[in-house]
Design a protein around this nucleic acid. Sequence first.
RNA 1: GCGGUAGUGGUGAAGUGGUUAACACACUGGUUUGUGGAUCCAGCAUGCGAGGGUUCGAUCCCCUUCUACCGCCCCA
Length: 433
Amino acid sequence: MAKPTFQRPKGTADLLPDQTVKWQHVESTARLLFGDYNFKEVRTPIFENFDVFSRSAGDTSDVVTKEMYDFHDKGDRHIALRPEGTAGVVRAYVENKLYGPEFDKPYKTFYIGPMFRYERPQAGRFRQFHQIGVEAFGSKSPALDVEIIAMAIDFFKTLGLQNLKVAVNTLGDQNSRASYRQALIDYLKPHFNDLSVDSQARLEQNPLRVLDSKDARDQVFVANAPSILDYLSPEATEHWQQVQTILKALNIDFEIDATMVRGLDYYNDTIFEIMTVDDHLKGAATIAGGGRYSGLVSEFGGPETPGVGFGIGIERLISLLSAQQVAPANDNGLDFYVVNIGKETDVVATQIAQAIRSFGYVTERDYLGRSAKAQFKTADRHQAKYVVTIGEQELSDQVANIKNMATGQQQTVKLAELYTNLPTIVESEENKA
RNA sequence: GCGGUAGUGGUGAAGUGGUUAACACACUGGUUUGUGGAUCCAGCAUGCGAGGGUUCGAUCCCCUUCUACCGCCCCA
């Protein structure tokens, strides 16, 4: 019998050091930049009561009906791994009474962490994936919508991304949306039999989704479908106009995509997506999506409070970064490598390595008792700038050799000197070069 | 949930129903015993995702399963 082998769960990934540098870069950039916009980080549980998500995302959304990663725990509680970040943050906002008068409005926050959806993995899609998301509660200002879009773009530009497209649309307020919904149904009903099977179902549950269809049969009708823009209430129109005015004032390139619909049911008014026009990601071109919502906070028992936010897919973002070759490379160059020869020098080798590290130099040594030649090869492979060599003779003389790997020159220094004055020695070496 | 392609060592990969599973890279050791990037030499898969089956015999044929990749749905 072979030993049982273990594989990571379907749709998950192990991120190894050459990947984690990129992740750290993305995350630290987000923390820095979002901080500039005065957004503060929150960390909420990665699992919640199932109802937190089913209540917020909408019962007809695919996320709830088929993609929820849920289970019953030992206390028979119905738990779900979060499929997106907004619901948990809203829950926390209400539970911690962050709508209280002592908190700033809008309450601006961001989060970074794993999300889970039970679906078939494929390009840019995983069962555990990660999002950087932001939410701002308590203001209906269109300026906030735009600021959030601007912040996302700022973030991508800071990372060095190019070829991005910003698509914006409005869903209108509750009334606009309801009347548009009816208009759409009235328009599509006569063509029911010519629609794709998927769209026939969508027409019943969420007719706006038909607009999003990629099926050629549907697109024929979508092209001539009534536009949401013609059904906006005066308030919704004003909000929408103001969003565009500010976007233009900030010189943000955007296009209005009247057929854009977002997957989660809670959105209204402004929605947007940022996607790449690189064909690298193809089916996963959208790297950020978000919009304005209302009703969520009250749904969780808080006061009626508007919100705006977006989510960025970190996997997709990093894959784009790599494709556009703006991802940071892993730098595993060493400052020092300690070569020790003979078993007797094993203890002092560690003492030397520790002393060098205490000055802040990246230091490695050999732990396998290998030959001097082998140790030098390793030092070279790791591009060590200096190699410190110590053998039995040096040990009894209380000295060590420091070799500058670039020049090949080697000098002998007293151990006491190395322990106390290494930076000075290094400095004089660097001045020579 | 549906459809398609694939699965050989650390990596890239060749391969065939039948004795020792090419080649390359990487790695390790050596080229007179304490010093690096070159050359040369040597070592490195009882194993061909897993489990069954067919067969005298299977990495190569069949079934199941797992996983990855691609597409649909949907989405980050």
